[in-house]
């Protein structure tokens, strides 16, 4: 039998994150292909009741310890190493999320296992595991092989179907009672999202602006379109980092996940971090000067052009149409 596959389950504020089910789904497929069991490990206080949701795994290791809530990478890694030693796990799946960032790399540094980051696809090839990694903001893919199936794969959220990892059955649980050293990184408190004037997750129409909007003054052009459409402006990370839009308008990995009826991606290249937050929009209209921008691969409607030229004309025409 091949070495077990181990999923690091992710939870935030007592809820299992979608990435956990994505990992369990792909982990189950890989485990079946190589003839290995699938295990999961779940950490933090109140972990025990959450373990019942991880029924896709053949067994869940649970470390129910409040000191493991949002614990630093080194502390989580110490638990993972114990589980790997105990279970002889060969492949470890970790989420490529803000919550788990750094855990895979710390584990790689401490075990010498190879790590493949930003994975969007995974398949078994005999006893080897082949992973496809998305690099350079989504412009290049790289196929990487773990020849003996041993290693750490960080999986991109949204790349795998979460439903494949859900199950109604409760899995067998093995409790871990591990000493946890006093960490040098201590969680103090949550800072709740800034409540802006507008909740972008509740909008039917979002006019998303990216780097291509070029300046804070130009954001007004997007505001004009949003206003005539009865929607709101939102933005990708570079625009937020420049302070051109408040944090409450950020869409993507660190920001909001939105699903409007129409999403305009204006001057947004379509980097995976942004795509993660708006991919389920019902109609995505992308405008970009770069005909090879990755956004066109996922958008429904595409225009190669300058948003600054298009916006005023489009706003006028929408106004005219609405009378």
């Amino acid at each position: 039998m091949a070495n077990p596959i181990l999923v690091l389950a992710e939870q935030l504020r007592g809820e299992i994150s979608d990435i956990t089910f994505e990992m369990l789904g792909v982990g189950r497929a890989l485990a079946s292909a190589v003839g290995a069991p699938l295990y999961a490990v779940l950490l933090g206080s109140e972990a025990a009741p959450l373990a019942a949701k991880l029924g896709k795994a053949d067994k869940v290791f649970v470390a129910d310890n409040p000191q493991l809530n949002l614990a630093p990478a080194a502390t989580v890694t110490a638990v993972l190493k114990t589980v790997i030693d105990q279970s002889q796990a060969g492949l470890v799946l970790v989420g490529c999320t803000n919550v788990s960032l750094g855990i895979g790399s710390t584990l790689a540094a401490q075990t010498g296992l190879p790590l493949v980051n930003f994975c969007r696809a995974a398949r078994a090839d005999g006893s080897a595991i082949q992973l496809t990694s998305q690099l350079f903001g989504g412009k290049i893919l790289s196929d990487v092989k773990l020849p003996d199936g041993r290693g750490i794969a960080c999986l991109y959220p949204g790349a795998f179907p979460a439903d494949d990892g859900k199950s109604d059955q409760a899995p067998p649980v093995e409790k871990l009672d591990l000493p946890v050293e006093a960490p040098k990184v201590t969680f103090k408190q949550y800072i709740e999202p800034e409540t802006g004037d507008v909740d972008i997750t509740k909008q039917n129409i979002l006019v998303g602006v990216g780097r291509g909007i070029q300046s804070q003054d130009n954001v007004q052009l997007a505001e004009d379109l949003a206003q005539v459409l009865g929607g709101a402006v939102c933005a990708s990370r570079p625009v937020i980092d420049q302070g051109w839009q408040p944090l409450s308008r950020q869409v993507g990995k660190s920001g909001m996940t939105v699903k409007p009826r129409v999403y305009f991606a204006l001057g947004i290249s379509g980097a995976p971090e942004h795509w993660e937050g708006m991919q389920n929009s019902l109609c995505i209209i992308a405008v970009n000067t770069d005909p090879k921008a990755p956004i066109f691969d996922g958008a429904h409607i595409g225009v190669v052009g300058d948003v600054l030229e298009l916006l005023p004309v489009l706003t006028d025409k929408v106004k005219a149409r609405k009378g």
Partner: peptide, 8 residues
Amino acid sequence: AGGLRGEF
């Protein structure tokens, strides 16, 4: 995610 941050 979702604008949520933690202080450490």
